[in-house]
């Protein structure tokens, strides 16, 4: 364990991470444009629907990845991971934005009546939209300056909304399915493990206090 913890940040980790996390988005944009404009089939026969779902799944993966950072850091002792939590979180926001653009611009084609009806009457849409707004608020307050201005306690409180966003995201994914919810259940299981780990930590931290009082 000591040797594992001694593992330092590899040189160039930041740029490599940036490129890796950008790749699905670059492929989504390039593939969709090529499919729509040139009739290729990178995203199959219905590229709009496919890329919409693809970007939604990548958003969820990145939200879950951002929730992996702290457990991974504590289990391995790699404290240098901490600063990349923001990188992963910002990418999650970038992908949810692309997901929304694919929905509103490519799928609904800015038909305002449909956008409004979806938002007011369709639970999986407004739950997804709530998750998007949370990710937006967290992205907007992700800078060091904002953290200082808000104060660490308030900032932490606001940013614990990521748990709400993650749950909303998985529920949104499940409700969007026609029938088969295998994939949303898989994402939900990963989320449950990550939330469960935090619950265990929390209980462990509280126990001495409880015993003392």
């Amino acid at each position: 364990m000591a040797r594992l913890g001694a593992f330092r940040e590899p040189p160039g980790f930041g740029p490599v991470l940036f490129v890796v996390l950008s790749l699905p988005g670059v492929l989504a944009i390039a593939g969709t444009l090529s499919d729509i404009l040139a009739g290729t089939r990178w995203f199959g026969a219905d590229p709009v629907k496919e890329v919409e779902h693809y970007l939604g799944r990548w958003t969820l993966r990145l939200v879950l990845a951002s929730l992996c950072v702290t457990p991974l850091r504590k289990l391995t002792g790699w404290s240098w991971l901490a600063k990349y939590r923001r990188t992963v979180g910002l990418f999650a926001f970038a992908y949810v934005t692309l997901h929304w653009i694919a929905y509103a611009l490519l799928d609904v084609q800015l038909d305002w009546a449909t956008l409004v009806t979806d938002l007011l009457d369709r639970p999986y849409i407004y739950l997804g939209m709530a998750a998007l707004l949370i990710l937006g608020a967290l992205a907007a307050t992700s800078t060091k300056g904002m953290m200082r201005r808000m104060g660490g306690r308030n900032w932490s409180r606001l940013h614990s909304l990521i748990y709400v966003a993650a749950v909303l995201g998985v529920v949104h994914f499940a409700m969007a399915q026609k029938k088969d919810i295998t994939a949303p259940l898989e994402y939900g299981a990963v989320l449950a493990v990550l939330l469960g780990w935090r619950l265990v930590q929390w209980v462990r931290q509280r126990r001495p206090t409880l015993a003392a009082s």
């Binding site: 026969a45 799928d107 038909d111 979806d118 999986y124």
Partner: peptide, 15 residues
């Protein structure tokens, strides 16, 4: 869960 007023013809972009 969705509107039936329009449809996407496979192979076309405009609804």
């Amino acid at each position: 869960r969705w509107s039936q007023a329009t449809e996407r013809r496979i192979g076309e972009f405009r609804r």
